[in-house]
C-alpha cells in the first residue's frame, strides 16, 4: 500500500522543466516587482542617466539582482518557448531546427547580458 503512494524514483527532465517553470515564475514575481518599484516609483524613468546606472551598478547587490533576473527570465522564456514549439510544430525537422535556433539565440543573449553586467565599469564614460 505504501509503495503506491511514494513518488517514482526517476522523475526526469520533463518533470524538472515543469517544476522549474513554476518556481522561477514565483521567484520572478518578487524580483520583477522589486525592479519596477525601484526603477519606476523610487526613481523616475525620466531621470535615468548614465550616472544613475553607474551608481546603481557600483553596488554588488544590484549587479547580482540584475544577474539573477537575467538568468531566471532567459531560462523561463526558453523553456516556455520550447514548450510552445513542441505543442504547435508538427514537422520533426522544423521542430528541431526552431528549437536549436532558440537555444543558440538565447544563449547568445544570455552571454551578452552577463558580459554587460560583469564587465561594466562604473563611471568610465562620465570621466
Amino acid at each position: 500500500m505504501q509503495a503506491t503512494r511514494a513518488r517514482p524514483a526517476g522523475r526526469g527532465w520533463e518533470w524538472f522543466c515543469w517544476l522549474y517553470m513554476r518556481i522561477s515564475a514565483v521567484v520572478m514575481i518578487g524580483l520583477v516587482l522589486g525592479h519596477l518599484y525601484f526603477m519606476h516609483i523610487v526613481n523616475s524613468t525620466d531621470t535615468i542617466s548614465h550616472e544613475f546606472v553607474s551608481q546603481r551598478l557600483a553596488t554588488p547587490f544590484w549587479r547580482i539582482y540584475d544577474l539573477v533576473i537575467l538568468l531566471f527570465a532567459m531560462s523561463h522564456g526558453v523553456i516556455g518557448t520550447r514548450g510552445i514549439i513542441e505543442d504547435y510544430v508538427r514537422k520533426p525537422g522544423l521542430r528541431r531546427g526552431l528549437q536549436w535556433t532558440l537555444y543558440v539565440l538565447s544563449a547568445a543573449f544570455t552571454i551578452a547580458g552577463i558580459y554587460v553586467l560583469v564587465a561594466f565599469q562604473p563611471g568610465q564614460l562620465s570621466r
Partner: peptide, 11 residues
C-alpha cells in the same frame, strides 16, 4: 503505482 508514475513522468 511507481511504475505507472514513472511512465507518466516521461516526455
Amino acid at each position: 503505482g511507481q511504475e505507472r508514475l514513472a511512465i507518466l513522468a516521461e516526455k
